[in-house]
Write a protein that binds this DNA or RNA. Sequence first.
DNA 1: TGTATTAGAGTACATTTGTTCCTTGATTAA
DNA 2: TTAATCAAGGAACAAATGTACTCTAATACA
Lengths: 205, 205
Amino acid sequence: MIKYSGENLTEAQNELYEWIRDYVRDFQHSPSIRQMMNAMGLKSPAPIQSRLKHLQDKGFISWQEGKARTLKLVDEIIDGIPIKGSIAAGGLIETFSDVQENLDVTEIFKKKDVFALTVNGDSMIDACIADGDMVLMEPLRDSYSLKNGTIVSAMVPGLGTTLKYFFKRGGKIYLEAANPAYDPIELNLDEVIFQGKLLAVWRKV
Amino acid sequence: MIKYSGENLTEAQNELYEWIRDYVRDFQHSPSIRQMMNAMGLKSPAPIQSRLKHLQDKGFISWQEGKARTLKLVDEIIDGIPIKGSIAAGGLIETFSDVQENLDVTEIFKKKDVFALTVNGDSMIDACIADGDMVLMEPLRDSYSLKNGTIVSAMVPGLGTTLKYFFKRGGKIYLEAANPAYDPIELNLDEVIFQGKLLAVWRKV
DNA sequence: TGTATTAGAGTACATTTGTTCCTTGATTAA
DNA sequence: TTAATCAAGGAACAAATGTACTCTAATACA
């Protein structure tokens, strides 16, 4: 049991609530009252209705009256991480403004064919992409839609794959590192295959 | 429409699919066939049944026969982004090794009370945390479990909140920036409240 | 053109399902 | 003890709902 919002539940109510929660997790839809009846070992739907009413009164569940299997758990629905505000990185400036937006990282997961790469090396360090970071990439079909300055993962057949800034000038492709220690790579259009462009950086500490 | 897994849908099927998807998003449960009928402007449930069968055959939906409102979208349930391998950031070294692991960003969402902050400023730039990045923080109860070198968000009452490296030496707390332009802040233990420690960095491009 | 296929309308039916009413038995409070 | 309260059983009802069938019109195809 997770939610004890003020009021407590009887054992029967608690058992029913947990069973419903598990059922919804497994089947993605609400059980019917008679299914609950069977699961609770009862022989009449009436006691279930009573317990459901109590669960509703205490704010644990809700449903559309008369409609089948419309029961919903009034749970803490987490579809994102709360963004509490901004933080100073350069002196002590402001406090949490308690902005109640949500960081929905999952949205990037909806995009099809996104893939991740582990970064090796420090050539993109000035772009704040460090060794060991995960870069999330979106596949590319052609290089024509690429804008100068985009960070791409490019494959030069026979050589390998690398993460670099993309530039195109006068029919030539330039792959530039974000680190003065590395020289730009100059290539012809047909010497390079672009696998993806950078969507996001993910670093676990 | 997102999913076009090989087979295409007719306009009617597509319209129905999208309506169902939106309904489920709004109400958290499946609509009934007659609701779909009304929404599609039809006067008989039969055409809906036909379209549902097609959607089922093509792998878009599924349901439990005979049971009300048990329809389920057979969506691409992504609980991770495929990690295709590592990439060189410092010369052309290796190619995708096609490692088939999954980057499960969602795992960090399971932890309770994780929150996000938007970074303002460049004081952590050498730690590769740039202006505009999102930092995901885990709440802290006490400072005793903190190790030197951890990145924390700390609040000095009356001043504000800041993101810094944490160090403790001889009864004193030192908050250090990852940028030589900023001087360390020296504080007593009771002058500072730690709100969280850094779990991850998220940057959308 | 004629035929086959498909979508939709209309109808009907059986099951599922939420809801209500009444009764019984157990537990509790006065 | 007695009355009150509550959970449960039993039965029944009406609405919601999935499903099957026939018929018609439109469309595609040869």
